[in-house]
Design a protein around this nucleic acid. Structure first.
Lengths: 232, 232
DNA sequence: GCCGCTCTTTGCGCTGGCGCAAACAGGCAG
DNA sequence: CTGCCTGTTTGCGCCAGCGCAAAGAGCGGC
């Protein structure tokens, strides 16, 4: 429960915070553990807290009334999430699910005004996070409007790998378990199509896949696919 | 150039602002006119100002490197836009084009810190605007992932009509000029498909279209289409 | 009043990607 | 070790929606 301040203070969300103010912010947080596949918060529930992911990977999922699921994004270590309070929202618009065992800092929403007064840089970081996500989401709309499935999947893989890639002898590996279905839900397609394309790429030596795992063996080749510039 | 304070003060962005603080905020703004089809700001340009639409309708357009255009949203009267500064962005991620002759309030970005200190409610309104747009954009991604073109177009029309609809004897009319191409760029499809569907709907008595104009004559019928629940 | 530009409509053929179905495989529990 | 559960692969047929093409139709400018 005692927080390792030196680790935390290095996160972008706390950039520019002095010792005293940092303490004040951290004092309102509590740290907790979420086992794999557990929900940190649930779509439609009253937003009572906001969060920072200290360790692990979290999947943000929206479910439609008809039951379709879409993965809005993955949260990486050090990122804020569930910051409905900063958007003036009272319910969570999506669910957050631990993709692996996670360690999460939780603040009650009631602490938000105080934190913002005490540590404006922290608030600014939250707003910037939201701004970045708006950007990214709009870029995604653009992709879905103008690009073919193959390019969208290639882009999605490149994005994940650049944010959560782990170097291995074989190439860059996504360092959390991800299914074909997950990739399909990120790109608005079906697991069948994802599976087919990954198989094709594997034949071309661009990626290597196995159960819940994807390794990009030829990032440059994947970029060519993403830009639709590879020789067929 | 003198602003009609009584009109402006009623806008949600200024809710809860006292006379003196309101004056302080407005003092930093200047009002200007943008003729139809002119650009208020341009994608990729350095973000130097933020804006509030007093009158008219504005189209926010993103253009891909390959030249594809996508309409991210329409700005309605009273809304803030181009608020890159509130997202910690330094360039505009899209262009804003006047769909009709428009009247716009412009603030220099340099005024932002002062305004936020002086009138926190104004800042909060900006953040809420961004939050709402993130929500809407994510909902759009969801739609594009899970729904057919016909339903997406129906939803898009319903959204426009609910925000910018004008009652007429025939039904609810979109009160700015909008082409089939525009609708296609909002929904990630082609003008051909839009034209075909609108024609079909016209035969069913749901809408009525003409050059750069769409009138929804049967909103309820259109909702059935949007939910994919109409009898074919 | 005529011309030209932009916007719209419609036909036709094609194909990317989906839906369905079935077989296969890795990993964990018992 | 065995069986089961979850995830993956692959074949096949189909169809929604796109691309292309060409013909109309308002509207503004001259």
């Amino acid at each position: 429960m005692t927080l390792d301040r030196s680790l935390i203070a290095g996160l972008p969300a706390f950039a520019g915070l002095e010792g005293r103010d940092l303490d004040a912010v951290l004092a309102r947080a509590r740290s907790s553990r979420f086992p794999k596949d557990s929900e940190v918060f649930s779509q439609g529930a009253e937003a009572s807290s906001f969060f920072l992911l200290l360790n692990g990977h979290i999947r943000v999922v929206r479910t439609s009334p008809e039951g379709h699921q879409v993965i809005a994004r993955y949260i990486n270590e050090g990122e804020l999430f569930g910051i409905a309070v900063a958007m003036g929202r009272t319910i969570y618009p999506a669910s957050a699910v631990a993709a692996v065992d996670c360690v999460v800092l939780t603040w009650p929403n009631t602490a938000w005004p105080e934190i913002q007064a005490r540590a404006p840089a922290f608030g600014a970081s939250a707003y910037q996070t939201i701004g970045t996500r708006l950007q990214e989401t709009q870029a995604q709309v653009m992709e879905m409007s103008t690009q073919q499935v193959e390019q969208r999947i290639a882009h999605a893989l490149l994005r994940i790998v650049s944010q959560s890639g782990k170097k291995t002898p074989e190439g860059i590996e996504i360092d959390f378990p991800i299914t074909r279905q997950d990739i399909a839900e990120m790109t608005g397609t079906t697991l069948h199509t994802v599976s087919r394309l990954l198989s094709a790429w594997e034949d071309e030596g661009i990626v290597k896949g196995s159960r819940q795992k994807v390794v990009v063996t030829d990032p440059h080749g994947l970029m060519l696919v993403a830009d639709n510039r590879r020789r067929k």
